[in-house]
Simulated assay, not measured.
Amino acid sequence: MDIGWAKRRIQGLMQAVVALLVLLLTGSIVPVNRGFRQTPGGIPVYVVSNGLHTDLVVPLRESRTHTDWLAHVADSAIKQQFASYQYVAFGWGNEGFYLDSYGGHFPRVGTALRALLPSATLMHVDFYRTPPRTGERAVALHVSPAQYQQLVHIIEHSFQPDSAGRFVLRNGAGYTSEDFFFRARGRYHALRTCNDWTNSALRRAGIRAALKAPFAPTVMYQVRQIQQDTVDR
């Protein structure tokens, strides 16, 4: 065995790991769309977090953009149950991690490790009777109709629909009676996490976000800066 070759391979691997860590750390603090400002009287969008995971919460129906999220759901029982609700939350994530969390359990070590590699995903959909209460774990933004339509497009495209374009249920129930899991597009891995999905959706819609945000605190930091910019104006 060529010891020099093996040594070069190890050094190359270490350099790649260091470069990845630098990307994650610096990307987390570098803002994109720094000039974004909230739209007075705009459409309310909430970014919520449980400390580990982030969701986007949007109006269940929005008249200016003619958006009705229940129209995408084939299940008539769901449509009837949530017809009077006001908001809906969307989160994208690892299928195994989500399903292993039933009953309030933290996923097993093996499930967490497998999530580091490309794996199947789900969309978590949670219905809200009223807007989220803003505070430590929820930030409210007001965006323009054009920005909101971009968010709608990104969220819609994250689902894996049936032949009729409707969202496909993965399970008959989620963690509570008000949330569900649907089939999703894309593969989850260490560089494409649930929080990176939220961050990417904000960034692609022209809303301030991080260059890279694998963790929830980074997502929340950037959206809080939007609020601070509003106060400072």
Rank of each mutant, 00 (worst) to 15 (best):
G4N: 13
W5H: 12
A6K: 11
A6S: 09
R9D: 04
R9Y: 09
Q15T: 11
V17H: 06
V18K: 03
L21G: 14
L25Y: 07
L25H: 07
T26S: 09
T26K: 03
T26A: 13
I29E: 01
I29H: 02
I29P: 01
V32E: 13
F36Y: 13
R37K: 12
T39Q: 10
T39S: 07
P40V: 07
P40N: 06
I43K: 04
P44E: 08
P44Q: 04
V45A: 10
Y46P: 02
V47I: 06
V48L: 09
D55W: 07
D55F: 08
D55G: 09
V57T: 01
V58G: 08
P59M: 00
H66R: 10
H66T: 04
H66A: 09
D68C: 00
W69A: 02
L70H: 08
A71D: 05
S76D: 10
K79F: 04
F82N: 03
S84E: 12
Q86D: 12
F90T: 03
G91K: 10
W92E: 08
G93F: 03
N94Y: 06
G96A: 15
F97K: 10
Y102Q: 09
Y102S: 07
G103W: 13
G104H: 03
G104T: 07
H105T: 06
H105M: 10
F106E: 03
P107A: 01
P107V: 01
A112K: 11
A112C: 14
A112G: 11
L116K: 05
L117C: 08
S119C: 12
S119R: 11
S119M: 12
A120R: 13
T121W: 06
L122F: 07
Y128L: 03
P132C: 02
R133S: 00
T134G: 06
E136C: 06
E136T: 12
R137P: 00
A138H: 02
H142C: 02
Q149P: 09
H157Y: 14
H157G: 14
F159R: 00
F159Q: 01
F159E: 00
D162S: 05
A164H: 09
R166Q: 10
F167D: 00
V168G: 00
N171I: 02
R183A: 10
R183K: 12
A184R: 04
R187D: 13
R187M: 12
Y188F: 15
Y188C: 10
Y188D: 12
H189R: 13
N195A: 14
D196E: 15
W197R: 13
T198F: 04
R203A: 15
R203H: 09
A205E: 01
R208D: 05
L211P: 09
L211Y: 12
L211M: 14
A216M: 09
A216N: 12
P217N: 06
P217V: 04
T218M: 08
Q228Y: 10
D229Y: 11
V231P: 01
D232S: 08
R233P: 03
R233G: 15
